[in-house]
Amino acid sequence: MSGLTLLYTLFAYVAIAVFLVGFLARIWKYATTPSPLKIPLTPAPVNSVGVVYRMVQEVGFFKSLFYSNRIIWIGGYLMHIALLITIVKHLRFFFKTTPAALAWITSFEIYVGFIFFGALAFLFLMRLVIDRTYYLSLMQDYVLLIFLMLIAATGILTKYYVRTDIIKVKQFVMGLVQFRPEAIPGDPIFIIHFTLVLLLLIYFPFSKLMHSGGIFFSPTRNQVDDAREVRHVTPWAVKG
């Protein structure tokens, strides 16, 4: 095993561990912190099926954002959909034999990387152009966008311009997920791409990216509007 392989194997495991432990610790915190009072944002669903439907609309279509700001919705929605497709397409690196459905999805060439990059650039621009978001934006907002743009750019490079040998990439990734380290491909663009992804994983649980898990715990969205019918009881707020 080369030094580079050893380094990246360790780096990858550390990054994944930090991400998993960090993310799950945050989720545990969100899940266990009590919600003493009923605070659904009404009109709200009156049963839990309705809450699931509301969540699907929010998570799947960004409904509130859609009705709030169509421009940001377009940028944000495109970005997230492109990200989702990209992640799905990357899943083939984690299966020994790629399932037919995944191969089928992957076979459509829709230049999703470019859409992802474009949407990110658009969001970056909007941050600067709208005086209200320019005022609000913090260093980490820009850093994250730049980070994701770099990941998209290097990914695009390995796919369309400086082709990398994906069989080697898959070998390497399969080695990682099966705890049987394989040599890391020497392609520098791939290594940069991979490094950025690992850094992002490490930063993830400490960042605003926690909105991905946090949205499911938002009381104004996930509570059932049944305050009069069902007495809402939580440990610290109601004695006995």
Partner: peptide
């Protein structure tokens, strides 16, 4: 309060400063 209110704890973390609320 962060330990007592899920709303507060979650809302502290998950704002992405998208700007959706800014003109509301």
């Amino acid at each position: 309060l962060l330990g007592k209110y899920k709303s507060l704890q979650v809302y502290m973390d998950i704002c992405v400063r998208c700007g959706s609320c800014t003109d509301k």
